[in-house]
Simulated assay, not measured.
Amino acid sequence: MNNGVANQATRCFRRLFDAFQKRVKEQNPHAELHFRHVQPRNLGELPDDDVDIVLSSGGPGSPFDGYEDPWGVGFRKLMDRVVEANLRDADRAPRMFAVCYSFELAVLHFGVAEMSKRDTLKFGVMPAYVTDEGQESDYYSPFGYRLFSWEHRSWEAINLNAAKLASIGGKVTAVESHAGSKVNTGDAILGFDFAPGIQGTQFHPEADRAGVMAWIEKPEHTVQVEAAYGRILYEKMLKSLADPDRLARTFALLIPGWLTYRFNELAPARGWKPLAAPEFDIQQFDIAV
């Protein structure tokens, strides 16, 4: 969904897939996994009909741009096919995880909240608060009530349509702030289990420290961060990146966990051995760049 704009997300998703593929092959030497990078917005590509797992990335841009274009209509039909297949035969149906821009498209398509333009860009290593229902989702299980991730967004999901969400079997899994917070305030919804087969987050669980540092250390971005948050908070953000319980832990466990649990749901019908839940290995996930 990056519309042909070079960014770190593609590298990060590929890094996560390669690690996942290695784990699958260790348990299932004869299983065949195929990775395909498709580009809907700029090339009009969409996943094949027989795909098992879809990781759909962030933008840039407004979620309304191209919404009715052929690629937008095709992507929304894909989401409907995923849900319909899961309702029909969940043991063999595809799964999708939607990040940032793709998350925003899902919010609009399913009508579970409003997408509103923010007055300012929100970016940085930020907390997300996992709801009680979110903590029941398997891929959030390592985090408890809070995790840290990279945010970079001009839009936000607000004004939950709880009745619509309940009608399609969804739930809110993460939010921007929690009751009584005086520091991390905001009304944005940051995570949904939208409907059977489709989960997603507004934040970037695929972001690793190397990618964030590559962004922050560009002179024009350093100025942007300091202008928005001040030098003290800029330095705190850099310190936060070195904390293994923050960004690195989310990178190591959230999407790898989601991939693992979705694989395990599909495994019995294909005769595959299930995978153990991923563990956080500090050396493997590059706490120090």
Rank of each mutant, 00 (worst) to 15 (best):
S181T: 14
P196I: 07
V172Y: 03
E220V: 13
Q224D: 13
F194W: 05
R270T: 05
L190S: 08
A267F: 09
D193I: 06
A248V: 11
A276V: 10
A179C: 12
A163Y: 11
K218Y: 06
T222M: 14
G169Q: 05
L238G: 07
A277N: 05
E279M: 12
A207H: 00
L275N: 02
L190H: 10
G230I: 05
A227Y: 09
G191Q: 01
A252I: 03
E217V: 02
N159Y: 11
H204T: 02
D281H: 07
T250P: 00
A163H: 12
P274R: 15
A242P: 15
A227V: 10
G169H: 06
D187K: 12
W155E: 01
Q283D: 14
F285C: 05
L253N: 01
F203S: 04
E151N: 13
P196M: 08
W272I: 08
R231T: 10
A162K: 07
V175E: 04
F192W: 01
S240C: 12
H221N: 15
I255P: 04
D243N: 15
L247Q: 07
I189L: 11
F263A: 05
E176D: 14
P256H: 05
I168Y: 06
W272K: 03
L259G: 03
F203P: 00
D243S: 13
G271C: 09
L160E: 03
H204A: 04
L266I: 12
F285K: 00
P274H: 11
P268I: 08
L254A: 06
I158P: 01
R249Y: 02
D208T: 01
G200T: 04
L253D: 03
S167F: 09
A207Q: 00
Q224C: 11
T173M: 03
W155V: 03
G170E: 01
S240H: 08
A277H: 06
W215E: 04
L165T: 02
F203T: 01
A163P: 06
A248C: 14
D243T: 13
A179H: 11
Q202T: 06
W215N: 00
W272Y: 12
A157L: 05
H152W: 06
L241K: 03
L241N: 00
A242N: 15
A210Q: 14
A267R: 08
G180F: 05
K273C: 09
G169T: 07
A188N: 09
I168D: 02
D193C: 10
R246M: 15
V183H: 04
L266V: 09
F192Y: 07
I255M: 07
T222F: 08
